Amino acid sequence: GAPPLPPYSAGGREVTMKKGDILTLLNSTNKDWWKVEVNDRQGFVPAAYVKKLDSGTGKELVLALYDYQEK
């Protein structure tokens, strides 16, 4: 199953993602919540729920390892 959710501390809205989604990583300075862009929406997802990909394009991409439903 998915890892436990860290307390929400990102101070911005969250976004929903599905397992297998490829998201653009915008900011990973917060260790628990990373800012991503998905379907032209920006928001935060739990860092433990995604994995960085080596895209080779200069853009940082992450793979959704679990479904996440915004609150």
Rank of each mutant, 00 (worst) to 15 (best):
A64H: 00
V62I: 07
L23E: 00
M17I: 14
G11M: 13
K51M: 15
L53D: 03
N39P: 06
V36M: 01
G56L: 13
S28V: 07
D54R: 08
T16A: 13
R13N: 14
S9F: 12
D67S: 07
G1E: 15
W33I: 01
A48Y: 05
P46V: 03
V15A: 06
L65P: 00
N27F: 05
L26V: 11
Y8M: 14
G1P: 14
P7Q: 14
N39L: 10
S28P: 06
T57R: 03
W33M: 02
V38L: 12
N30I: 04
A48N: 15
T24N: 08
V50W: 00
S55H: 14
Y49T: 03
L61G: 03
L63I: 14
K18M: 11
V38C: 07
G11A: 15
K19D: 02
A47M: 04
G43V: 06
L63T: 07
G56Y: 14
P6R: 01
W33E: 01
L61Y: 14
E37V: 08
K52C: 06
A2V: 13
K31N: 10
F44K: 02
V50T: 04
D67I: 01
L61I: 09
T57A: 14
P46A: 02
V15P: 02
L65Y: 03
E37Y: 04
S28M: 11
N27I: 08
Q69A: 15
P3I: 06
R41H: 10
T16I: 06
W33R: 01
Y49C: 03
P3A: 06
K71H: 11
L63N: 02
Y8N: 10
K52P: 12
I22Q: 04
K35S: 07
G56R: 03
G11K: 04
G1C: 10
M17S: 00
L61W: 09
A64T: 04
G56N: 13
P46T: 02
L26Y: 03
K59Y: 10
G43F: 07
N30V: 04
W33T: 01
Q69E: 09
A2Y: 11
E70Y: 07
D21G: 03
R13H: 15
V36Y: 01
T16Y: 11
V38S: 13
D54M: 13
L61C: 05
A10P: 14
L65C: 05
P4G: 09
A47N: 02
K18V: 11
T24M: 12
S9C: 08
L5Q: 08
V45A: 03
N39R: 10
V36G: 00
K31Y: 09
L25S: 01
R41E: 13
L26S: 02
V36H: 00
D32F: 13
P7H: 13
K35Q: 15
L25T: 01
T24F: 11
V36C: 05
D21A: 06
D54Q: 13
G58K: 11
K59N: 10
D40N: 11
G11F: 05
S55A: 13
K18C: 07
N27D: 15
L23C: 08
A47C: 04
A48C: 06
W34N: 00
T16P: 15
E60M: 13
G11H: 11
G12N: 06
N39I: 08
R13W: 11
D21T: 07
E60D: 12
Y49W: 08
Q42R: 11
Y66K: 05
W34P: 00
Y68D: 00
P46S: 01
V15Q: 05
A64E: 00
S55C: 09
K31S: 12
D54P: 14
K51C: 09
Y49E: 01
Y8S: 15
L5F: 07
D67Y: 04
G12L: 09
L26K: 06
D21V: 04
L53S: 03
K52L: 14
P6F: 03
W33V: 01
G20H: 04
N39E: 14
D67H: 04
G43E: 03
K31G: 09
Y68I: 03
T29M: 13
S28Q: 10
K52N: 04
F44S: 03
D32R: 05
L5M: 10
Q69K: 09
P7D: 14
R41I: 13
G58Y: 07
L23M: 15
L26M: 07
D67C: 03
L53V: 12
K35D: 04
P4V: 10
N27W: 06
E14F: 07
E14P: 15
L61A: 08
Y8F: 12
Y66G: 02
T16D: 10
G58I: 12
K71I: 12
T29G: 09
D54L: 14
L63A: 04
E37S: 09
V50G: 01
N27V: 09
G11Q: 10
S55M: 15
Q69S: 14
P46Y: 01
K51L: 15
V45F: 00
A64L: 03
Y49S: 04
P46N: 01
I22N: 02
P6G: 03
G56Q: 11
D67R: 02
V15D: 00
P4T: 12
L26G: 01
D54W: 12
N30Q: 06
W34L: 04
V62W: 05
T29N: 14
G56K: 06
P7E: 15
A64Y: 01
E70P: 15
D40K: 12
N27G: 05
L5I: 13
K71S: 15
K35P: 02
P7T: 08
K52Y: 11
R41M: 14
L5G: 05
N27R: 06
P4R: 05
R41W: 06
K51G: 08
P3K: 03
G11R: 04
Q69M: 15
V15C: 08
Y68L: 03
A10H: 15
T57P: 14
P46Q: 01
G20N: 06
Q42C: 07
E37W: 06
D40I: 04
G58R: 08
K31Q: 14
D40F: 10
L63R: 09
L26W: 04
T29H: 11
G11N: 13
D32Q: 07
G43P: 01
K19Y: 05
V15R: 02
K19F: 05
A48I: 10
L53M: 07
D21Q: 13
P6H: 02
L25E: 00
F44Q: 02
V36I: 08
A2E: 08
L5S: 07
D21L: 04
L23Q: 01
N39C: 09
K71V: 14
S55W: 13
R13P: 13
D67A: 04
T24K: 12
N30L: 07
S55D: 12
A64M: 03
K59M: 13
L5D: 06
P6Y: 03
G43R: 03
A47W: 01
T29R: 08
G12Q: 07
A2L: 13
T24P: 10
P7G: 08
K51H: 11
V45W: 01
P7L: 08
R13I: 12
L26N: 03
G1L: 10
G43A: 05
G56M: 13
L63S: 04
K18F: 10
V38W: 09
T16M: 07
G1N: 14
Y66W: 14
K18N: 08
T16E: 08
T24G: 07
M17G: 00
N39F: 08
P46G: 02
D32H: 13
V50D: 01
V38D: 10
D40V: 07
M17K: 00
K51R: 14
V50M: 05
A64V: 09
V38M: 13
D67M: 02
A2I: 12
K59E: 12
Y8A: 09
P46M: 01
A47G: 05
D21E: 12
Y49G: 02
G20A: 02
